[in-house]
Amino acid sequence: MSTTITPSKPASEQQIATTQPNLFGEFLQETLAMTRRLFIQLQRRPSTLVAGIVQPLMWLILFGALFQNAPQGLFGNQVNYGQFLGAGVIVFTAFGGALNAGLPVMFDREFGFLNRLLVAPLASRFSIVMASAIFITTLSLIQTAAIIAMSAFLGSGLPSAIGLALVALIVLLLVVAVTALSLGLAFALPGHIELLAVIFVTNLPLLFASTALVPLSFMPTWLQVVATLNPLSYAIEPIRYLYLHPDWNLGSVIMHAPFGNVTLGGALLILVGLCAIALISVQPLMKRRLA
């Protein structure tokens, strides 16, 4: 009786077969590890999160009280200033947090930790950037939830479940776009002083040149043009419309701009385009800096 012996693979071939890298799994593991590092830093310094929640709530309460005696009809029929202001506070809180996204990366650059990451055997160095984006997006959504809850407590009401999901989508698109630009600045600028200067110079002009604090019709003509060129207005107005109009649809007119009417669907397309442009524009810079 004869037996058939099948030749076994050489040891080197078996080793290669068993050590094939799972690039996606390694990228995911690296991203989660670096994201966890950022949350551990937040856990050690919780004042950052507390301040990020308390400040917009103070805006909501104090600004709402400051303009509660504004002329009737200035912000729309049967709309108080607290209801009008909520969308602006949501957007500018998310915008401010995303604008600061580059600071942790910049400090890692200055303290030498980023160099250690760059020489480490990472599956993809984009996990460094992805971790920062996930961290900032999570914080922005937490802040947004706190503002929505406080607005409801102060009597501003709540959108429908689909409306809340659309608010989260708008915030997400804005945060991803601004986070990409902030991370690009973190790799392009020489130090954190320059990055802080850009943040300080950018914040207030974009706040006052948008529809966050007053309606478009209240502004002079030249400022109306500037506000309609401000991308933040296309995040503020959809959220405001979702709050004030329960019967919304994508064809609803949310803003009467000097160049024409802007619909809810049109504003969403503008935000998607802004997000795509930001991601595409910073990609070559990040590839060069992470190489």
Rank of each mutant, 00 (worst) to 15 (best):
T6W: 13
P7W: 14
E13G: 00
Q15W: 06
Q15G: 07
T19P: 00
T19D: 03
Q20L: 11
Q20Y: 08
G25K: 12
G25V: 00
E30T: 12
T31N: 03
T35A: 02
F39S: 00
Q41L: 13
R44I: 00
R45L: 10
R45F: 13
P46Q: 04
L49I: 08
V50F: 04
V54Q: 00
Q55E: 06
Q55I: 12
P56A: 06
L57I: 14
G64C: 08
L66A: 14
L74W: 07
N80M: 07
V91Y: 00
V91C: 09
F92T: 00
T93K: 06
F95R: 03
L99D: 00
L99I: 15
L99Q: 03
V105R: 09
D108N: 09
F111W: 06
F113C: 06
N115V: 06
N115A: 13
R116W: 09
R116S: 06
L117Y: 11
L117G: 01
L117K: 05
A123H: 02
A123T: 02
I128F: 03
I128V: 14
M130D: 05
A131C: 09
I136M: 13
T137I: 09
T138Y: 00
Q143E: 07
Q143L: 09
A146M: 10
M150C: 14
F153M: 15
L154S: 08
S156M: 12
L158E: 02
L158M: 11
L158I: 12
L158Y: 14
A161Y: 14
A161Q: 11
L164S: 08
A165E: 10
V167K: 15
L173A: 10
V175K: 06
A177T: 01
A180I: 14
S182Y: 01
L183I: 14
G184E: 01
A186H: 03
A186G: 07
A186I: 02
A186V: 01
P190Y: 10
H192G: 04
L195F: 08
L196N: 11
F200H: 11
N203F: 15
L206F: 15
L206S: 11
L207S: 09
A209Y: 04
L216C: 12
V225S: 04
V225Y: 04
V226K: 11
S233T: 15
S233Y: 09
Y234R: 02
Y241M: 06
P246M: 07
P246W: 05
W248C: 01
L250I: 03
H256Y: 09
H256F: 13
A257F: 02
F259R: 08
G260L: 07
L264D: 09
G266V: 05
I270M: 14
I270G: 03
A276H: 07
S281Q: 05
S281L: 15
V282T: 08
Q283L: 14
M286V: 05
M286S: 06
